[in-house]
Design a protein around this nucleic acid. Structure first.
Lengths: 342, 342
DNA sequence: CCGGTTTCAGAAACCGATTACACAGAGAGT
DNA sequence: ACTCTCTGTGTAATCGGTTTCTGAAACCGG
């Protein structure tokens, strides 16, 4: 016995489908109370729930947004997702979560699937993405909000949400310099990533503001994972004589530093100060707890979804510049930083 | 300019909608090659993609499954989700991920939303769930696979997937006893959770097999988080004289033990052996790396989705017993266990 | 040249909702 | 009594596909 349809309800209540629909949609102008109650009773009796599928067909809205992320396991996402969902629910939207697994092909498959499903919009928060995704979305008039990505031929109903690393990293440098540090190392992410470059530049620029030239900074390219931090620590121990502070492009690498420092009997923070970036939850659990440049992850999620709503309400013409928005970073001081030794 | 419909394609190609539909569905028996090519050209030209919404309306299938989890941030899930998605994609299914945030109300809202969206089935992997969810799903004839939950009035098209903790925990006890341990502590989860009881029982039963009575085991109730492990370590240090091995109901608490042990200058594993459960990725990154009872998470995801397909193909009648299935656990030995001191 | 198959493609009904429009009955005004 | 609103509800078209049924053309042997 299949699920009841609006026609079953109409028959049960002895009214027409139109009347049932009016009751459902709430805006039942000009309706006799007795009728409404008969309909409601029938709905109750049959345990009727209207099909979103059928509704979407006429309304041309699915009240669903897609969100593309690289990897649910990445500690960056949970809070972002939480922010997105909270905002979405307030407006009766559902969120379709898609794991690209850092795979552009898979991401593209998701994009197409989302288009076919006629989601109302897409949030792209995958670190490894492709301009093709945007092109495909644009071709199908699907609005999109993109986090922290350089879009070249920006077209379509688009919004770019940028993370401003500058502010938080400036605070980090201020903090270290105030503690007397002058000899720095930097553990970056893979060179080809946009975010790597942004973070590194912000760091070096802030140091220059204190008269410390780029050439004095020991830069080690990492992999954004714990292992990369370990290797960086080895490099610093072996070739980084005199360095008293390390700024890592993310927290996981900072954790690798912390872990490997023990092997070299280097005390953190007395011998070496360490600052991470991301301020993931784990950063509060390390020994010592990690000082880190924090991204407002929950807020990023909220904003992204709000911006999508904005695009839905006021679509941008194809020729228009994409909408831009920005969130700020800030330093969270914990116990992995201390005055420079000596 | 809105997206093209099948009618647009038909017009462009100079054929009827039916013909276009035949080309789309592939099983285009009795179709002239020239016609097919005209249609394909039109599809290409218009960049046409059929609407899943409209398709679902007639086919009564959405090729979408819902999956309810408590919290994307929980390190248990990523691999499970990966397993689910991999299996789903092979059959052209998409997965709708829903975060209940440990909130039964929110979960119920998701269940209803999934029903309204007419997903083909639901996977329930939320640790905090409610029998009402199942009742609601059953009322609407939605098949469901439930992970590790005691269902009382099991009804509907249902499959119960159980984790067999017994085997892995037995291995853990074998391992510890072989190392000479006789004095044990156990850090459990909150008493009211079913899994807490299962894990504790398996542990105590295995010990009894070696002639160690329950009463000799120091049991501390934890919160399944790092903090709970820290407190447990304090309790053991202060009131657990002679205990040489601790079995924790999950890895996070074991990490708390590791962390707090330093404060008491207790060496792990020489002074105290520690075993966790879950074998989360972090367990490989601790100092020392954690010995842990592993759940085959990826396999759990795969199986869950396969079982759902099974339910879809061979629906169970309402009176039938739910389908049962089980996955085994096993011990992963790392460096947090060593021979008992003395 | 003709009747019977086989190929190919269109017409129309249908899936489950929404909504524009039509229309009937009740009061109100004249 | 007779329009004229105002209310309340039904009819039918529509959304974008799928599928059944039907019929036309092509082919084939006699």
């Amino acid at each position: 016995m299949s699920r009841p349809t609006i026609a079953d309800v109409a028959q049960q209540a002895g009214v027409s489908k139109a009347t049932v629909s009016r009751v459902l949609s709430g805006r039942a102008e000009y309706m006799r109370d007795a009728t409404r109650q008969r309909v409601e009773a029938a709905i109750e009796l049959l345990n009727y729930r209207p099909s979103s599928v059928a509704r979407s067909l006429t309304s041309k809205r699915t009240y669903t947004a897609g969100i593309l992320i690289s990897d649910v396991g990445n500690p960056f996402y949970p809070e972002v997702i939480h922010g997105v969902e909270d905002t979405a629910f307030q407006d009766g939207y559902d969120v379709f979560l898609c794991n690209t697994n850092y795979d552009e092909k898979r991401g593209m498959a998701f994009v197409r699937s989302l288009i076919d499903k006629r989601v109302d919009g897409v949030l792209i928060m995958s670190s490894s993405m492709s301009d093709e995704w945007l092109a495909e979305l644009a071709r199908n008039n699907v609005p999109a909000v993109v986090l922290d990505w350089d879009v070249h031929n920006a077209r379509g109903n688009l919004c770019l949400l940028r993370v401003d690393y500058q502010k938080g990293i400036q605070q980090a440098v201020d903090h270290l310099v105030a503690l007397g540090h002058r000899q720095f190392a930097h553990v970056s992410g893979p060179k080809e990533l946009r975010t790597t470059q942004l973070r590194q530049e912000s760091f070096l620029t802030a140091l220059q503001g204190y008269g410390i030239p780029k050439s004095d900074v020991m830069t080690i390219e990492g992999d954004l994972r714990i292992e990369g931090g370990r290797k960086a620590m080895q490099a610093i121990a072996e070739r980084g004589a005199g360095k008293t502070a390390v700024f890592c492009a993310n927290d996981l690498m900072a954790m690798g530093i912390l872990s490997e420092a023990r092997a070299y009997a280097i005390q953190i923070p007395t011998d070496l100060s360490v600052i991470g970036l991301d301020d993931i939850w784990l950063a509060t659990q390390t020994d010592p707890p990690l000082t880190s440049v924090a991204l407002p992850r929950f807020q990023i999620g909220q904003m992204a979804m709000q911006l999508l709503f904005e695009l839905l309400e006021n679509p941008r013409m194809e020729e228009a510049e994409p909408l831009y928005a920005q969130v700020e970073t800030s330093l969270t001081v914990r116990e992995s930083t201390a005055p420079a030794p000596g």
